[in-house]
């Protein structure tokens, strides 16, 4: 942790050669005094939130459907989180971080006009062809991770995120409501719709394969 800072000190002292020596002394002393509390804050921030890096990355990856965007968003979310870490007094660091990751992801989705926030789902296309596929057949294919990934990626963002939060992070309805900023009463119905759509998408894909 101290290494990059020392390297910068060394770098700067070159630039000060022409400046009055006394100024150089004051500047260095100020920096060392001020760095100390921030380093402590950074350490406690990293201890609290870096363990949730996988969860943050997974959520961003499902929302953005793109590895590079996901990494950029997660990095930015960590910076945002660090800046407001002083105001965070909760105990649920993961939910807090995921809220920031989600908001940052939506900012990028909106900017790219890639927002399928609300369910603008083509019911016509997805309503055909899956009636003949029985639940048992879907169950046979349910270990096909690639098939599930494709079906998940077809869903609108609000469904992708709620499925990832519940199935993969195992979050409670209350936590999901906090992260996605919807009323707690809506979580169950949205989750039910998301699961029904996922089943439908899987059935459609399996039906096409036949």
């Amino acid at each position: 942790m101290a290494l990059p800072l020392k390297a910068e000190h060394a770098l700067e002292s070159e630039g000060f050669e022409s400046d009055p020596k006394i100024v150089k002394f004051v500047v260095v002393k100020k920096r060392e005094e001020q760095d100390h509390p921030l380093k402590e804050e950074l350490t406690s921030f990293e201890e609290a939130l870096l363990p949730h890096l996988d969860a943050a990355h997974n959520l961003a990856r499902w929302l953005l459907r793109n590895e590079q965007d996901a990494q950029d968003v997660v990095q930015e979310a960590y910076l945002r989180a660090f800046k407001s870490f002083g105001g965070f007094h909760g105990t649920n660091g993961r939910a807090w971080l995921l809220t920031i990751v989600r908001n940052t992801s939506y900012t990028l989705l909106k900017k790219n006009h890639a927002v399928d926030l609300t369910t603008t789902f083509d019911e016509e296309i997805h309503a055909t062809g899956h009636e003949s596929v029985s639940p048992a057949t879907i169950l046979e294919h349910s270990e096909d991770a690639e098939l599930i990934r494709q079906a998940m990626d077809e869903l609108p963002a609000e469904f992708r995120e709620i499925l990832a939060l519940r199935h993969q992070e195992g979050l409670s309805y209350k936590e999901i409501a906090d992260i996605t900023q919807i009323p707690p009463g809506t979580v169950m119905s949205r989750l039910a719709r998301a699961r029904a759509k996922l089943r439908e998408c899987l059935a459609t894909r399996i039906g096409k394969e036949k």
Partner: peptide
């Protein structure tokens, strides 16, 4: 069905360089 699908959904772990 939901349990099987949930278990098989790929989990995207963060690559080491992101950390």
């Amino acid at each position: 069905l939901i349990r099987a699908i949930g278990n098989a959904t790929p989990y995207y772990n963060a690559p080491a360089e992101l950390r």
